[in-house]
Design a protein around this nucleic acid. Structure first.
Lengths: 329, 329
DNA sequence: ATATGATCATGAAACGTTTCATGAATTTCA
DNA sequence: TGAAATTCATGAAACGTTTCATGATCATAT
């Protein structure tokens, strides 16, 4: 009978229910509608198996209820956690996430921004690696860990404070000679302040320290060399290490054990991020825990804020110290 | 002068370039257009800073270039890997991914399917946990690891073959008494065939075996109890274990070490999945490696296939055995 | 009883794109 | 040279929704 092959639309529902198109719209959107009309429409929707079509709304309203999240990948557990919490925060507000993996590729960063614009997303949250990235002005944009300009809010952990805390903790643990190790580019990122805070604390406390920072181009083996260079008759020259990220800390601890250095007996190690790794590791690293959930929540509420331009340009959220011993049996 | 406040559209570009609207469309879509027209349009696009609007196309063509991926989360490294490769496969074909995290929540699974329908995605790839999930008929749908019906293609690793391989390898390694351990529901999943293959191999080879499978409701400590129950004067009753997933294998190895059982000296352990964990673990587990990239590629090419109805209803991709010793120094 | 206001459904226009039938301009061939 | 075929731009309609001005209905107040 019916020659319908394509999905029913609001017009079909309206015809079926014997009401006007606009009435169906108001029912669907839960707006004020008279009782008998509402039930007629709802019955028609049931009968026809009507499915709302977001494309129509997107075109009409220019809103998509979608936020783009630009991030290197989800293999790195810290990123995975971030994606996870951002997604929850968006879902709570009935927003969808358009996830863009850059794989640390700067050209992809720009491409994804353009793609997000073409898709008319309602905002962009980005964790990027190109310091010269062009930020679109016509779309709400917030960054994680990257400061671009006062008009682009940056959400980050209190990296400086975390670094300071690490120095302080090592001192409290009785360390006499410490070092900071990190990998990655020399960007003026927020995370680079981990070092600054650590150095400041060491200076303040009169704790002798060294800094070993790798560039992107340098291989991990440079760390091994650095450690070897600081061995004297079987003992490491440091009794405390602050390492830029937990993942690096695990790798370095593995190297240390291979060299016969015991952790934490011979050297205290503090990492950064607060990755749990499912209780799967044999050793537990002390770490500065990033408030991932708060970061995610703040990103979302900021990017969706009606008054983005009045938001702070840098939001630093407090970190916590977690003693590895607690998860170590 | 110009009273434009909203973004320029194809009509604006057409006016600016002095051509027809349809011509702009054809330029933008890279279709056949005369040379002088093309350059006029491209110049106008530049001048106006025109940005294509995908909402219009979605409405007109009912295609969104988007695939929904429904998966529990991205915290589990295996899922993270899957998401990663599916995303790459989609990107290659110029498709976007709408990522839906169910958190193992069955009601969310259904909600996301409805949401995907409302967003008119071009297909759905799903790794779900409700065996009674209603699969929409009007939209290409493929599953990972879950068989619903012959009309819903299921892509999976060769779980039976992998289980068999594990049994065979343990026998080759000289094991005399083995066990299978796994966690999770009793769904008739594809992954449950890991056990079947293992059992089949043990029977075939005359290798004595036990099976220890936990339900969702049982706590991990049941495993510890099981292991304790199989200790006799300081030695484990098994000299070989096949464990359903790598993550579980790591946890169990940790327990074993805590009990004074050495791996692999006292007991050989084989996991399943092939998770690398960034070379961060101190012990390397032998494992049956899932062909994640091929699974991802197959999911994408299948769901985008023009002739979905003619596709096989079950596609099993070959696994590989990876000896832990290779990554162990 | 009429005027005023409140409530709420209606009908039509608009959003930005694709696509198709039309027709103009050019080329090809007899 | 004229007819037929080909190329390619044009103009308009359509996709499914939201929204706004209009008007109908009914209750309340004068």
């Amino acid at each position: 009978m019916a020659k319908e092959k394509s999905a029913p639309t609001m017009a079909d529902v309206a015809r079926e229910a014997g009401v006007a198109l606009g009435t169906v719209s108001r029912v669907v959107n839960g707006q004020q509608v008279g009782e008998e009309f509402r039930s007629k429409v709802e019955a028609a929707i049931q009968r026809l198996g009507y499915q709302y079509n977001t494309s129509g709304r997107a075109l009409r309203t220019d809103r998509t209820n979608t936020i783009a999240l630009i991030i290197p990948n989800t293999i790195n557990p810290y990123f995975a956690l971030l994606v996870h919490h951002i997604n929850l925060a968006l879902e709570k507000r009935n927003y969808k996430m358009m996830l863009c993996f850059t794989e640390y590729d700067r050209s992809r960063e720009s491409e994804f921004i353009q793609m997000a614009q073409q898709n008319r997303v309602d905002g962009i949250i980005a964790l990027t690696y190109n310091p010269d990235l062009t930020i679109p002005e016509d779309i709400p944009f917030v960054t994680i860990d990257r400061f671009f300009s006062v008009s682009v809010p940056c959400i980050a952990a209190d990296n400086f404070g975390g670094g300071w805390m690490a120095g302080q903790k090592l001192a409290e643990l009785g360390c006499k000679n410490v070092a900071f190790m990190r990998i990655g580019s020399t960007l003026t990122n927020e995370p680079s302040k981990r070092k600054d805070g650590f150095v400041a604390a060491c200076v303040e406390l009169g704790l002798p320290f060294e800094v070993m920072a790798l560039e992107d181009s340098q291989p991990f083996s440079e760390f091994e060399r650095f450690l070897c260079d600081h061995m004297q008759n079987g003992r490491l020259a440091f009794d405390g290490l602050f390492i830029g990220t937990d993942m690096l800390a695990w790798q370095i601890i593995r190297v240390l054990r291979g060299m016969g250095v015991r952790v934490p007996e011979d050297v205290q190690v503090i990492g950064f991020d607060g990755i749990q790794m499912f209780g799967v590791l044999e050793y537990a690293v002390s770490t500065i825990v990033q408030p991932v959930q708060e970061i995610a929540e703040t990103c979302v509420s900021t990017v969706l804020s009606k008054h983005l331009s009045t938001m702070p340009s840098l939001i630093c959220l407090p970190v916590k110290y977690a003693f590895g011993g607690t998860t170590k049996e």
